[in-house]
């Protein structure tokens, strides 16, 4: 078969060219800005600084703190998300078909906007008349300082984020579960394996590709978290919810430090990329 070389370009060029000017160009410009001092309100434009911004970031305890907060957030959200999503998927897989209409309900939190969801949870977490503390009170538990205690605020954001993501990931797991042939599991049971052993040694390994996907998309979205802490806690109390996303926003739009904000963004991108790559490599070695 004769392959016409140019035949591929009508498919690829429009999309790639578009990305070049809406994504690549701004990213390269931001990369340039990360080596400069640039305050949008200033008239002079960017001033070349070399590696100063990066040097500042690596020695700034605030940046280290924000990275730690972000990492803690990600490493709490992702495993919880997987556990609940998988549990829900297993339940849905075994539940009566009449309940399949409920799947739409599980999706609603993940397709509603982050700002809307944050507003809703701000009401839920309201200390005296919020739904959650009212429910706690009804069963005799004291009011929880959901967002006001520096030891609790990040966990409260984690709970909300997990609530938001479980439905989405559960459906992905569900689809994968339905592709596992019943006779594979049956063979295990014939050999005397318990339900748990069937899950642990047959189902779970077969779900590995899905888990990788959930982990990588989870890394990208949790490490960039901005809207929830910005709307709900403004990064407090005691900076306990100041994620890197919040820090970048402050630098760029409140302090007029666009250069530093760009450098922080690339630092974050490198961290995300490294973690995602690590994950891929681990799988490649395993499989």
């Amino acid at each position: 078969m004769i392959q016409k070389r140019w035949a591929v370009w009508p498919f690829v060029l429009p999309g790639l060219l578009y990305l070049v000017f809406t994504h690549l160009a701004p990213t390269l410009y931001a990369l340039y800005l990360s080596f400069t001092s640039y305050d949008p309100a200033q008239r002079g434009g960017p001033e070349w600084l070399g590696l100063d911004n990066y040097a500042r970031l690596l020695t700034d305890p605030q940046v280290a703190r924000a990275l730690l907060v972000t990492a803690q957030f990600a490493f709490e959200v992702i495993p919880l998300n997987i556990v609940f999503a998988l549990a829900l998927a297993l339940l849905l897989n075994a539940a009566s078909r009449r309940l399949s209409g409920l799947r739409a309900a599980f999706f609603l939190p993940s397709v509603a906007s982050a700002v809307v969801v944050s507003l809703i949870w701000l009401w839920l977490y309201e200390p005296t008349f919020g739904l959650l503390n009212q429910a706690f009170k009804a069963v005799g538990l004291g009011p929880m300082p959901w967002l006001s205690d520096p030891n609790w605020a990040l966990h409260s954001l984690v709970i909300m984020r997990v609530w938001r993501g479980v439905g989405w990931n559960a459906v992905i797991y569900l689809a994968a579960l339905q592709t596992i042939p019943e006779d594979v599991k049956e063979a295990g049971r014939v050999d005397g394996a318990s339900d748990w052993q069937v899950f642990r040694y047959i189902t779970w390994p077969l779900l590995t590709p899905v888990t990788i996907y959930v982990v990588v998309t989870g890394l990208i979205s949790t490490f960039q978290t901005f809207a929830e802490p910005f709307v709900m806690t403004k990064g407090g109390p005691l900076e306990s919810t100041t994620t890197v996303g919040v820090l970048i926003y402050r630098q760029a739009f409140e302090y007029g430090e666009m250069g530093l904000a760009s450098a922080t963004s690339f630092l974050l991108a490198i961290v995300i990329f490294a973690l995602a790559l690590l994950n891929f490599l681990r799988v490649r070695r395993a499989g």
């Binding site: 701000l122 309201e126 200390p127 006001s148 205690d149 407090g236 109390p237």
Partner: peptide, 13 residues
């Protein structure tokens, strides 16, 4: 410490 924003003023509640 850390009284969060609430839609109703604490003077009212």
């Amino acid at each position: 410490l850390g009284e969060p924003v609430s839609p109703v003023s604490p003077l009212v509640t």
